[in-house]
């Protein structure tokens, strides 16, 4: 433990020096990390999603689409069925707790076109609810149950939001930041 403290002291440098990257590299331009498929998607997405109120941006090396919670199912169906995008594979559905709001993140992939996109929807922390996408991809079933279990997000019109990985009678939402980790019980 003393060695750890010693090493920590040595490694600590003022925050102003290592602002961005430990290697001292410059933060790249937002566009620079997109590969060619991403750049093609950048031109396609505004046309595909022209009917919806979305904001399209770039998240590291992926195109990201931020939608309103109510539009989630319609946007996802559009992305899945449109001939230019064909996102037929839901890679991952996760929930992130930014304390003022919760964010539901959908990572999509197309098996034919082999491109990827991220769809995000923000819901409030007090009453987090948004429509379920089980009608679009059957594989989102358990992800949504897990999101409900760990974060308390209610997915409307989901076939059955029973607890998936926590035991019956568990109180609280352990995924949230407000759930203390250090306050554990032995049994």
């Amino acid at each position: 433990m003393a060695y750890l403290a010693f090493r920590t002291k040595l490694c600590r440098t003022p925050r102003s020096v290592e602002k961005n990257n430990n290697n001292g590299e410059q933060t790249p331009e937002p566009n620079a990390l997109l590969d060619e498929k991403g750049r093609l998607l950048e031109t396609l997405l505004p046309n595909v999603l022209s009917a919806f109120d979305v904001s399209i941006g770039i998240s590291h090396d992926l195109m990201e689409v931020i939608v309103e919670p109510a539009d989630v199912v319609a946007v996802c169906e559009n992305l899945k069925n449109h001939s230019e995008t064909l996102f037929n594979y839901l890679t991952c559905l996760s929930v992130v707790d930014y304390v003022e709001h919760l964010q539901v993140v959908y990572h999509l992939y197309s098996t034919q076109k082999k491109h990827k996109v991220v769809v995000k929807a923000n819901v409030s922390s007090e009453e987090p609810s948004l429509p379920s996408v089980t009608s679009v991809w059957k594989g989102s079933d358990w992800y949504e149950r897990e999101g409900h279990d760990l974060f308390g997000v209610i997915f409307e019109s989901h076939p059955g939001l029973a607890p998936l990985i926590l035991y019956e009678g568990f109180e609280g939402y352990p995924g949230r930041k407000s759930f203390p980790l250090h306050d554990y019980k032995e049994w």
């Binding site: 926590l166 035991y167 568990f170 352990p174 032995e186 049994w187």
Partner: peptide
């Protein structure tokens, strides 16, 4: 997993 919320810290509790 000693600080986890869902792990029994040792089976000798049971």
């Amino acid at each position: 997993y000693y600080r986890s919320y869902s792990v029994v810290m040792g089976v000798d509790h049971i």
